[in-house]
């Protein structure tokens, strides 16, 4: 008898508490809405449950780190009432995650880390879902690519490299994965510098680095964060960068392909987000807000961007959409030209 009374008491307290919290958060929401309403005259969106952040690669990679950093900063600074939960979905070179998010239809609480390398591989592999079928969300960072060779190699400048590479099959360029940014960067060189270098594909940049250091390939294509250790130690020499402008810091002296006269050999890695195809406009606006705030925090700038040698950028979802549509067009064109897709 006592038990039953206790139980009903506990339950009523719990119900009361949740009602109270519910009321409180609703009150908060209403006031937020009131403010927002003044701005947009649209009901603002806040996630009703944990937001699922899908990462199309395994834990520990660049995309994963990106997602976790954002989740951490967003939650700590209360930019979002509900936690961002990171879920890894590697498989199909991004295809599985893309398909999963596509299948979420009108869901507003699922977003995905979008890396242009995976946009490329889904195109190159003819995956059922390509990025144009999803909703584009903000772009949050750029990463750059470098062409790097070993110290003591026969070509120490990019001009020497291009000269040497004109002989068919003489120069071996290592990169990770196929139909990805490294691959595309390589194809751009061959096409616009009219070289005939050979591409050797590795599973990861770690493997590429090993092959380069071991002298098994002549040059490699890397992100700054992947090779900076070796460059500072003097073991590797950066020949050129694919960025539109010189990268600062340790790479201040590295010429861009553009300034050497190759206007078309420009490629950056882009880190952005995407959502299900029918995500509501309010939700899109919400993620725009949250991601904008995150990219403006000091923590993001010093602890994430700087430490990983990334370039700051922010494009809201509308700008991202325009940007990517152009990008995807250019990827398709180049892939067709070099025969990666039919």
């Amino acid at each position: 008898m006592k038990m039953k009374k206790m139980m009903s008491l506990v339950i009523s307290v719990l119900i009361g508490a949740s009602a109270a919290t519910g009321c409180a958060s609703k009150a908060l929401q209403t006031s937020e809405t009131a403010v927002k309403g003044a701005e947009e005259a649209k009901p603002a969106f806040t996630p009703g449950k944990e937001v699922e952040v899908v990462v199309p690669s395994s834990a520990g990679g660049g995309s994963d780190l990106n997602a976790r950093t954002i989740a951490d900063i967003a939650f700590k600074n209360q930019y979002t009432p509900k936690n961002f939960m990171v879920t890894n979905m590697p498989g199909g070179s991004g295809g599985v995650a893309f398909s999963y998010v596509y299948g979420k239809g009108t869901n507003d609480e699922t977003i995905m880390v979008l890396h242009n390398g995976q946009i490329m591989s889904t195109i190159a592999n003819n995956a059922p879902v390509t990025s144009d079928k999803l909703t584009y969300l903000p772009v949050v960072a750029y990463d750059n690519l470098l062409l790097v060779t070993k110290k003591g190699a026969p070509y120490q400048t990019v001009e020497d490299f291009i000269e040497a590479a004109k002989t068919p099959e003489k120069v071996k360029v290592g990169g990770s994965q196929r139909g990805n940014t490294d691959n595309l960067a390589f194809e751009l060189i061959n096409k616009y510098a009219e070289t005939k270098a050979a591409y050797v594909q590795f599973n990861s940049s770690g493997d590429t680095m090993t092959a380069l250091l071991g002298g098994h390939v002549d040059v490699g294509i890397f992100n700054p964060s992947e090779c900076i250790g070796q460059i500072e130690a003097g073991e590797l020499v950066p020949l050129a960068t694919f960025a539109p402008e010189k990268i600062g810091g340790a790479f201040a002296e590295v010429p861009t392909f553009k300034e050497k006269g190759f206007d078309n050999i420009v490629l950056s890695e882009v880190r952005a987000f995407a959502g299900p195809p029918k995500m509501s406009a309010e939700a899109i606006a919400f993620y725009d807000e949250v991601l904008k705030k995150v990219t403006e925090t000091d923590e993001w700038k010093t602890n994430y961007l700087e430490k990983n040698n990334l370039q700051p950028v922010y494009m809201n979802s509308a700008e991202a959409k325009a940007f990517f549509e152009k990008e995807v067009e250019s990827y398709r064109t180049i892939f067709k030209e070099v025969g990666i897709i039919q």
Binding site: S58, A59, G60, G61, L65, S204, G206, S225, I228, G229, Q230, E232, A233, E235, N303, K307, N308
Partner: peptide
């Protein structure tokens, strides 16, 4: 894969793995 995560961690702490 696990070592790759550790590598990422090292960089986050501002350490530069390498020679």
């Amino acid at each position: 894969g696990t070592a790759a995560v550790l590598l990422g961690g090292l960089m986050m702490w501002g350490l530069q793995p390498g020679p």
